[in-house]
Amino acid sequence: MAAGGDHGSPDSYRSPLASRYASPEMCFVFSDRYKFRTWRQLWLWLAEAEQTLGLPITDEQIQEMKSNLENIDFKMAAEEEKRLRHDVMAHVHTFGHCCPKAAGIIHLGATSCYVGDNTDLIILRNALDLLLPKLARVISRLADFAKERASLPTLGFTHFQPAQLTTVGKRCCLWIQDLCMDLQNLKRVRDDLRFRGVKGTTGTQASFLQLFEGDDHKVEQLDKMVTEKAGFKRAFIITGQTYTRKVDIEVLSVLASLGASVHKICTDIRLLANLKEMEEPFEKQQIGSSAMPYKRNPMRSERCCSLARHLMTLVMDPLQTASVQWFERTLDDSANRRICLAEAFLTADTILNTLQNISEGLVVYPKVIERRIRQELPFMATENIIMAMVKAGGSRQDCHEKIRVLSQQAASVVKQEGGDNDLIERIQVDAYFSPIHSQLDHLLDPSSFTGRASQQVQRFLEEEVYPLLKPYESVMKVKAELCL
């Protein structure tokens, strides 16, 4: 049975990233139509530049190519590739079939990587351009969430054990800070992308030097003109047959890092959902379990974690691919890159769409948070109580021993009897502590235990987050809708 299948058929496997999760716009960027249309555009740009620099290419040939950029006979191309065992030459023939007058000058002087690699770089750039505003929107939604809850005390956790208090907004800023680093890295790697350009079979530009009869300047002009037509500021000066596969490492490393950030955020949300302090959106008709109707599973956060793990592992592909590119190139890269580049971007696209949807509907339960604080705060307040007693004339050592005994009794009630923490009640009825009984409410005010959390939130948002989001103001209103 021949390899390949009808990918629109229910009898043929289709990647869930495309069929179930990723956005239509990201799927289109990695589609065959987008790819092969870009090949034709690159052939047109090459012909236009070659004509401008004096090669015998007519206006009629150029116009014929322009008129057929979208006229792609995919069936013919597939048949040609089956016959020739070469995808680029299959599309040269297919393009030439609908451009008979231009057929002889299509791909003039070029090698397969002229269309293959340059198209990949265009796709990487455009895919990054799709991700950047999506990530900015996630940051914006979380920034709104953090600002609104900047002063809401909550129990902090280290080692997932109760620690000092923080605020809900401050905790959210930990998430935002990681995503801001990801946004900066995505922008950097996007701006650092260079075009492969017009380089020939081993990167020496020998074929173009021959076409222009040894004119170095025209060869350099050709490279520059096509690079500018493709919208790049610069091209690699040095290439082998391909652009260095280190570029793929750079791009997928940034995406993998984004995956790590999203995994951490969504894990926190899942843990908070278990504590009943916070939940992701839950639709009115949504079913959490087929057997347990009360369940409210954090399905979206779980999906993000599941896909983020996949995204983090994909960076190993370009690392290994770059390491086995012998001399000017081997074909070890080809099949692998067809999979890992598309999957990385479709996965990143999915987790950003999902995280935006989550961040637009996060639900906080202040009463649950308050109750958990009441359970733990008495123990945390013991040092403040000791200091207040010393100020009232008591002995630190005597007070410490009193607190120690009462704390152990209260802990026994919590752990052995399943009761509430009654340390404060014990202190309130103990005559030894009568000098500070009137101060206990103040000493137990949760806001006095959150330090500068709310001020940190305000400063972080104003100095770091809002300036970073400013270039994306025009796209901030787009909502994230999930079908599944």
Rank of each mutant, 00 (worst) to 15 (best):
S9G: 04
Y21F: 14
A22G: 10
Y34M: 08
K35Q: 14
W39A: 09
Q41D: 12
W43A: 00
W43L: 06
W45Q: 11
E50G: 08
L53G: 04
T58A: 12
I62D: 00
E64C: 12
K66N: 09
S67V: 13
A77K: 05
A78H: 11
A78Q: 12
K82N: 12
K82A: 14
D87T: 01
D87F: 01
H91P: 00
H93Y: 07
H93E: 11
P100M: 08
A102V: 08
Y114Q: 03
V115F: 01
N118G: 08
D120V: 07
D120C: 07
L130D: 06
L131V: 08
L131F: 13
L142P: 05
L142I: 08
K147R: 12
L155Q: 01
G156A: 12
A163V: 01
T166G: 08
C172I: 07
C172V: 13
L174M: 15
L174I: 13
L183F: 10
L186C: 13
D191F: 08
G200D: 00
Q205A: 15
Q205N: 13
L209E: 13
L209F: 12
D215L: 08
D216T: 10
V219N: 08
E220S: 10
E220G: 08
Q221A: 12
K224F: 10
F232H: 00
R234K: 10
R234V: 09
I238P: 01
T242R: 00
Y243M: 08
Y243T: 15
S257D: 05
A260W: 02
K264T: 04
T267C: 08
A273K: 13
N274W: 06
L275Q: 03
E277N: 01
E279G: 06
E279L: 07
E280D: 10
K284F: 13
I287D: 02
G288N: 01
E302W: 05
C305G: 09
D317C: 07
P318Q: 02
V324K: 04
Q325G: 12
E328L: 02
L331M: 07
D333M: 06
R338S: 00
L341V: 13
L346S: 10
A348S: 13
I351A: 11
N357I: 07
S359Y: 13
G361D: 15
V363I: 13
V364S: 04
I369A: 14
R374Y: 07
F379K: 07
I385P: 03
V390Y: 07
A392N: 10
R396V: 03
I403G: 05
L406R: 06
L406A: 10
S407M: 01
A411P: 03
S412K: 12
V414W: 06
Q416I: 10
Q416C: 09
E417L: 12
N421E: 03
A431Y: 05
Y432Q: 08
I436W: 04
P446H: 15
S447L: 14
S448E: 14
G451C: 05
A453T: 09
Y466S: 12
P467D: 07
K470E: 13
V475A: 14
L482P: 07
